[in-house]
């Protein structure tokens, strides 16, 4: 890792980088670069960035293991909260701009349409994680229970990918690509649980800490 104090330099830098997709969307909005159906652009771009941030967040642990950069953990909460931020914007786009708070319509959607159900599930599962993301809450819940709770991000990610897969009209290549990436990220965890990476991880770990 660089020698700069990560707390004061790197974190704000990563924070600013994480803001880029929505600043870019705002820029496209004011400069008239969106399509004629700009609402669809809002919906699609907040949605796809939710999935991207989910994948980035879920990459932290595998990356730490592989590279030995354990300080990456410092960014995990922020990345998780950015995932939630984008999913919240996506959710608002649906509730407000797309449905105009027509709760009868929304209720019909939730009860009838798998892609809406999976989208709601993915979003609502992230809420408790965002709320309990503070140090205070870790203490309140206790590390082990907190960790258990935060494993819900796996379920949320699966729901998110399904949501995308069920929504596209015909070309499922992108959703499948996200599915494969998610399978790799979750598969890594399963494999390391079963200690299949043990020799590798042990070697890399000892080199780095030495």
């Amino acid at each position: 890792m660089p020698k700069l104090n990560p707390r004061w330099i790197l974190k704000p830098a990563v924070f600013l980088i994480c803001l880029v997709p929505m600043v870019w969307l705002a820029w496209d909005t004011v400069s008239g670069n969106l399509t004629a159906n700009w609402l669809e652009d809002f919906r699609d771009r907040t949605g796809i960035w939710t999935l991207r941030f989910l994948m980035i967040t879920l990459s932290v642990t595998p990356l730490r293991r592989i590279t030995g950069w354990h300080s990456l953990i410092r960014f995990r909460r922020m990345l998780g909260l950015f995932t939630f931020f984008h999913s919240f914007l996506h959710f608002i786009t649906y509730i407000w701009l797309d449905q105009f708070f027509a709760f009868d319509e929304i209720l019909k959607d939730i009860t009838k349409r798998p892609f809406i159900i999976s989208g709601f599930a993915g979003f609502f599962l992230l809420i408790p994680l965002a709320i309990t993301s503070t140090k205070k809450w870790i203490g309140r819940l206790g590390g082990k229970r907190w960790q258990m709770l935060h494993r819900f991000i796996y379920v949320s990610a699966v729901a998110g990918v399904l949501h995308y897969y069920w929504r596209v009209k015909l070309d499922v290549r992108d959703p499948v690509a996200y599915g494969v990436l998610l399978a790799v990220l979750l598969g890594f965890r399963a494999f390391s649980r079963l200690n299949l990476f043990k020799p590798l991880v042990a070697r890399v770990g000892s080199e780095k800490s030495a």
Binding site: A36, N37, L39, K108, D109, K112, R113, F115, W166, R167
Partner: peptide, 13 residues
């Protein structure tokens, strides 16, 4: 409806 979404309303561009 389309099996995956409603056709009851539309957004006029």
């Amino acid at each position: 409806d389309h099996p995956r979404w409603s056709q009851a309303s539309e957004r006029r561009i």
